[in-house]
Simulated scan of single mutants.
Amino acid sequence: MSSDTRPANDRTRPSPPSEGMAGLAKGLAVIEAFGAERTQMTVTEAARAVSLSPAAARRCLLTLTELGYLVQEDRYFRPTPRMMRLGEAYLEGATLPTLARPFVEAGRDELGESMSLAVYDEGTALFVARAEVHRIVSTGVRLGARLPAYASATGRVLLAGLPEEERERYLRTCEPRRTTPHSVTTIPEIRDRIEAAAAEGFAVTDEELELGMRSMAVPVVDSAGRVHAAMSTSVFVARVTMEEMRRRYLPVLRAQASALGRLL
């Protein structure tokens, strides 16, 4: 006896078609393929990057060019400033970056250092809010920038807030790279740093990503104990000692992150 309980006249109807737009999905995949390490692409490179046929990749690239998001020079396609509008839709309209702005600004004003807020996104710390201190030499972090989660103070705080299964899945697939002599590149060491971030409620890096730079990050936690983001600051080694960061910077970061967390 059949277990199908639908009326007889419904059982012959085909399943409704998906309402998704395959072409839009392909175009967005091509957009996401551009980045700091892939600033321009040919049709062949785009097809390989997003697992499309060359014909489909070419249609996506030409459509994005017609819409003003890309410009074509010979065989290569490059993003135009119009591409920034896609990110602005999140940065201007999303609740978290909007709520975070006064808190990163308050931290900047108290410490005299640039402050940032980042969220976890596909194995990276994605920076969604920032308050700058203008100096001749910048610390280099900008809105929309990404740092590898395993290597950054911000990323380790965010990883510490993930469910254990998700965190371990990430550690099984990540491929650490050495960028300075101080980089931590073994999975056991990285796991230890993440566990320390969870236990201590903050993380630091000392010239691990870039020589001459130190960073500190704390979690932004809501009333239910969920980690939504990480608030951080980076300083030049020649200007601020690690001892000063722990003594003076950590309380400010924690105070501003806690105030933001109470709104979430």
Rank of each mutant, 00 (worst) to 15 (best):
I194D: 09
L28K: 01
A149Y: 00
G201Y: 09
T205S: 14
S183M: 00
R193T: 03
T139D: 15
A259W: 01
I187Y: 01
R248S: 07
L159P: 02
A160E: 10
S138I: 06
F236L: 14
H134C: 04
S215M: 09
E164F: 13
T95C: 12
Y90M: 10
P251G: 08
L62I: 08
G87L: 03
V141M: 10
S223V: 10
G155H: 13
R59Y: 13
R82S: 11
T80D: 01
R78K: 15
L147D: 14
R246K: 10
R169T: 10
I31T: 13
D10S: 05
S15F: 02
A106G: 08
A145I: 11
G93Q: 14
V240T: 12
G140C: 07
A160L: 05
F103S: 06
L70C: 08
L143V: 14
E207D: 02
L28M: 12
M1Y: 10
Q256T: 15
E37S: 12
G27I: 07
T42Y: 10
E110T: 01
V237G: 00
T124H: 03
Q72D: 02
T124P: 00
L143F: 13
R156M: 03
S53E: 08
E165C: 04
P79E: 09
E113V: 02
A89G: 08
T180I: 08
T180G: 07
R172P: 00
R58Q: 15
G212T: 06
G212Y: 03
P219W: 04
D10V: 08
V218F: 13
T154I: 10
S114K: 15
E200C: 06
M245E: 12
V133M: 13
L24T: 13
F77V: 04
F127K: 02
A29K: 15
A151T: 01
G35L: 14
D206C: 08
R167G: 09
T173V: 12
G212W: 00
T80L: 02
T124A: 04
L162S: 01
I187Q: 11
P163T: 06
R75S: 05
V128G: 01
V128N: 02
M231L: 03
T39V: 04
R254Y: 09
R101F: 09
L263A: 15
A230N: 07
T5G: 00
R156L: 04
I194N: 13
A255C: 07
L250Y: 03
R214N: 05
R108S: 09
A259F: 01
E189C: 01
A196I: 11
A25M: 05
S138C: 03
A94C: 15
R169A: 13
F127H: 06
M1H: 11
F202A: 06
R146A: 12
P14M: 13
I194T: 10
V237H: 03
Q40W: 05
S53G: 00
E244N: 06
I187F: 04
R142H: 11
G155M: 06
V240F: 03
L96I: 13
L99Y: 00
